[in-house]
Computed example of a mutant assay.
Amino acid sequence: MPEKIWPAAVLPKLLLIYGQKWEHEDAQVYGTPEALRRLGEACIAASEKPEGQTVSVEMMATDGEGYTVSITPRQEHGMNRLPDHYCQDREFD
Rank of each mutant, 00 (worst) to 15 (best):
K49M: 15
D63S: 15
S47W: 08
A61R: 14
R38S: 12
G64H: 05
A46R: 03
L39P: 03
R38Y: 02
T54W: 00
A46Y: 03
E58L: 12
G66I: 01
A46V: 04
M60L: 09
K49V: 00
P50D: 13
I44T: 11
G64K: 08
I44P: 00
V55M: 05
C43R: 09
E65N: 14
C43I: 15
K49G: 00
E41W: 01
Q53V: 14
A61N: 14
K49L: 06
A45V: 02
M60S: 12
E41L: 10
C43A: 15
G52A: 09
I44D: 04
D63Y: 03
T62F: 09
E41S: 07
T54Y: 00
S47M: 13
G40L: 06
E48M: 11
K49S: 09
E48L: 14
V55K: 02
R37Y: 02
E58Q: 11
E51S: 14
G64D: 07
G40E: 08
K49W: 04
A45N: 07
G52E: 03
L39Q: 03
R38C: 01
M60C: 15
E41V: 01
M60K: 13
R37N: 10
E65D: 13
Q53T: 10
P50T: 09
S56P: 00
V55P: 05
K49D: 00
G52I: 05
D63E: 11
I44A: 12
M60Q: 15
P50Y: 04
V55A: 04
E48Q: 15
S56V: 07
M60F: 03
R38H: 11
V55R: 02
E58K: 09
V55C: 05
E48I: 00
D63P: 06
C43F: 11
M59P: 02
L39N: 03
C43N: 02
G64I: 08
E48W: 02
P50F: 06
A42D: 07
S47F: 11
V57K: 01
T62N: 13
T54P: 04
V57T: 10
V55Q: 10
T54E: 14
G40N: 11
R38L: 10
K49I: 01
L39Y: 02
S56D: 10
T54K: 13
A61L: 13
C43E: 07
T62Y: 08
T54S: 13
Q53M: 11
E58W: 00
I44M: 09
A46W: 02
G64M: 11
R37G: 02
V55D: 03
E51N: 09
G64Q: 09
G64P: 08
C43T: 12
E58R: 11
T62W: 07
Q53C: 04
G64L: 11
A46L: 08
E65I: 11
S47K: 09
D63C: 14
I44H: 08
R38M: 05
E51L: 07
T54H: 00
G52T: 09
M60Y: 04
